[in-house]
Write a protein that binds this DNA or RNA. Structure first.
Lengths: 178, 178
DNA sequence: GTCTATAAAATGATAGAC
DNA sequence: GTCTATCATTTTATAGAC
């Protein structure tokens, strides 16, 4: 699953072959099919791995007492991954983009689920901050992150992440506490 | 080229076969290869088609005398395409995400070029508005668009585009003229 | 230039020995 | 549970008639 998440992030779901994942996981190709009946199940596994990473992160941030500091910690984590983002973009966002092109199979919905997880956590922080429209603010913050990840990636320029990240931090600081 | 742009937007570059494009263009598969030696050349063609559309749009907007109105017209155009964005995302952005996963072939750079085209035009408008850091503002505006397109698409919810678009319009209106 | 038929390659998936 | 060998399918790309 870890290999799947890593390779799918780097190469994209469609370009990734079972052989690619098997090589990174250091097992023969046939063996993969003992645990995952289809390639799509591997993609779901990659998605779950990202969800798990997100829960680990928000769990750590929840230790902080101030919701504003939690949000700033989230943004700082994103900024710390600027180089990875410049090369391969946000793992969840880029995978969602790819899966959203599909019909029929419910994989497109799966990708949305991880993003909803992030949105819900961010919304909770804004709510605790006493903001009047926490859902809209969450949309703006997560949207800004996905947008700056995409531009960082498309322009191959990590400094985009720094500049936009700094703007978001200042934005949070400028908010009135309730 | 029009068929390529359309199908690649809907299905993504990797999932799109030459046969898919040929069917939409209503020509036999073999004929496609008379004009495009490889599949990648078709992807480049789709990209050029998007660049052409962008130039048509900015050309129309340049007729407006006020740069602020030009930017608002751009955002309004994006909002008008909310339903397409909810189903398939931003044509240029989603294609860029996919091509950025590649190595070696220079196709990843090609995708960045179209986005740079948009960034440059937006930056020019902010410059004419007398804003001190037009490049940063352009990054913020285009980033916001890419982010809200991705969320609109991942959540399959056109209203995301409305809410975030309205926020951007208000943001533009709140800017001091120079 | 247009089209049909087909070659060539890549890759998802399985069978069966161990 | 692990691994090798292989099948079956899809898809890129080409050959050659018209």
């Amino acid at each position: 699953m870890r290999a799947a998440a890593e390779v799918v992030h780097r190469q994209g779901a469609e370009r990734t072959t079972i052989a690619d994942i098997a090589r990174v996981a250091d097992v023969p190709v046939g063996n993969v099919y003992y645990y995952f009946k289809t390639k799509d199940e591997l993609v779901v596994a990659a998605l779950c791995e990202h969800a798990r990473q997100l829960e680990l992160l928000t769990g750590r941030l929840d230790q902080l007492s101030d919701p504003r500091e939690r949000l700033k910690g989230l943004i700082q984590t994103w900024m710390d991954q600027r180089d990875l983002a410049a090369r391969y973009g946000c793992p969840t966002g880029t995978l969602a983009v790819e899966l959203d092109k599909r019909d029929k199979d419910g994989l497109d919905v799966e990708a949305g689920r991880v993003i909803r997880l992030l949105l819900a956590w961010v919304e909770r922080q804004f709510h605790e901050l006493g903001q009047p429209e926490p859902d809209s603010l969450a949309l703006t913050l997560v949207g800004a992150y996905q947008g700056m990840s995409l531009l960082t990636n498309a322009l191959r320029d990590p400094s985009v992440m720094d500049r936009e990240g700094a703007r978001l931090l200042a934005w949070l600081d400028s908010m009135e506490a309730a």
